[in-house]
């Protein structure tokens, strides 16, 4: 299992487009469970609606947890996306 914490610098936080890009990234790793936590809520990163429902905005901190055969690769892809300001 790998776990990492990110601070959202993107002006829109986890609004529809960044959240959609995140879900699409996670879909590239079918056998891996990816969970996102903000505060005391943790949701599946495969569900756009759940990710949106976190209400994560600019400046918020989220914790991502990956578990499964491609956990490392999934985390690397997510880190690239989030730290790159969702530029993909």
């Amino acid at each position: 299992m790998v776990e990492r914490t990110f601070t959202l610098t993107h002006a829109a936080g986890l609004h529809a487009r960044p959240a959609a890009l995140l879900v699409q990234t996670v879909q590239r790793f079918p056998g891996t469970e990816v969970l996102i936590r903000k505060g005391d809520r943790e949701v599946s990163a495969r569900s756009l609606l759940s990710v949106l429902s976190l209400g994560a905005s600019q400046g918020d901190t989220i914790t991502v947890r990956c578990e499964g055969p491609q956990a490392e690769e999934a985390m690397a892809a997510i880190a690239q996306l989030v730290e790159g300001g969702f530029d993909g």
């Binding site: 529809a16 487009r17 959609a20 879900v23 699409q24 599946s44 495969r46 569900s47 756009l48 609606l49 759940s50």
Partner: peptide
């Protein structure tokens, strides 16, 4: 296209 793309993701949403 972006709106419709988001709708397709919602349609496939495991939570739904």
């Amino acid at each position: 296209r972006e709106i419709l793309g988001a709708h397709r993701l919602m349609l496939a949403d495991p939570e739904l």
